[in-house]
Simulated scan of single mutants.
Amino acid sequence: MYFEWFLKGNVIYGSWFEHIRAWLSMRKMDNFLLLSYEDMKKDTRRTIEKICDFLGKKLEPDELDMVLNYSSFQAMKENNMSNFSLLKNDVVTNGLNLLRKGTTGDWKNHFTVAQAEEFDKVYQEKMAGFPPGLFPWE
């Protein structure tokens, strides 16, 4: 049921496709940096360096190591400032876990083959006009 609602945009934050299209429409602007979680997981250090280059900031090796440490999935999962644990239950949907596993490709463990095909079909329709490969999904 939720899968169908998501594809139609009938979920609490609206259409994911419209949200992403709005952001991607700005991807060629100088003050816009497009990053993916998949790329960050493959090479976190390089992703942080890209962010630093974008911001015009040079980090010393020990500073970069500190950023790597504090931005790791485990550190953020344990940090009350980044895991919703400081919010009251009436503000956050009960049971919402913002930081689940920190892995990529887990959708394969939840989508059926038919759902994956349906998502691909809707994605192609809703994201028409954007270059293929913007998302490095596995």
Rank of each mutant, 00 (worst) to 15 (best):
M40W: 04
L99W: 07
P131F: 00
M40Y: 10
F130E: 07
G133I: 02
T47M: 08
F119T: 02
D62F: 11
V11C: 11
G105K: 04
M127V: 05
K8Q: 15
W137R: 00
N94R: 12
S15I: 09
N79S: 04
L86A: 01
Y123T: 08
D120K: 11
L99T: 10
L86R: 01
E18W: 03
L59V: 12
M66N: 15
Q115K: 03
A114H: 06
E4T: 12
W5A: 13
S15G: 08
N80G: 08
W5R: 14
K58V: 14
N94P: 15
S72F: 05
M1N: 14
E63H: 14
K58W: 12
I51A: 05
G9N: 13
M76I: 06
E60L: 15
N79G: 07
F73A: 10
D43C: 08
S25G: 11
N69F: 05
D62A: 15
Y70E: 08
N97Y: 05
L35D: 08
S72R: 09
S85P: 05
D106F: 00
N10K: 15
K50I: 06
R100D: 00
F32M: 15
R100W: 01
S36I: 10
R46W: 04
G95I: 05
F135D: 03
E4F: 05
S82A: 09
W137S: 02
G14C: 06
G95R: 02
L35Y: 06
D39G: 14
S82V: 04
S36Y: 01
S25D: 08
M26S: 10
L68N: 08
T44P: 05
S36N: 11
K101G: 03
T93Y: 04
F111V: 00
T44G: 08
L86C: 01
L86D: 02
N94T: 09
L64T: 13
V11R: 13
F17A: 11
T112G: 00
F6C: 00
F111I: 00
L134S: 01
D43V: 06
K101E: 12
E118S: 14
G129E: 10
P131Y: 04
S71V: 10
R27A: 04
S36P: 10
E60I: 11
E118H: 12
R46S: 13
N10M: 13
M127Y: 01
T93A: 13
F111D: 00
V92D: 01
L98P: 08
D53W: 05
L134F: 06
R21Q: 03
N83L: 00
M127H: 06
E78L: 12
K8Y: 10
D65P: 07
E38V: 07
N89A: 07
L134Q: 07
D90A: 00
R45N: 07
V11M: 11
N69R: 14
T103W: 02
V67G: 09
K77H: 02
F6M: 01
F84R: 02
S72Q: 10
T112S: 13
L33F: 04
M66Y: 12
E138T: 06
R21L: 01
D30K: 09
T93D: 11
D39H: 14
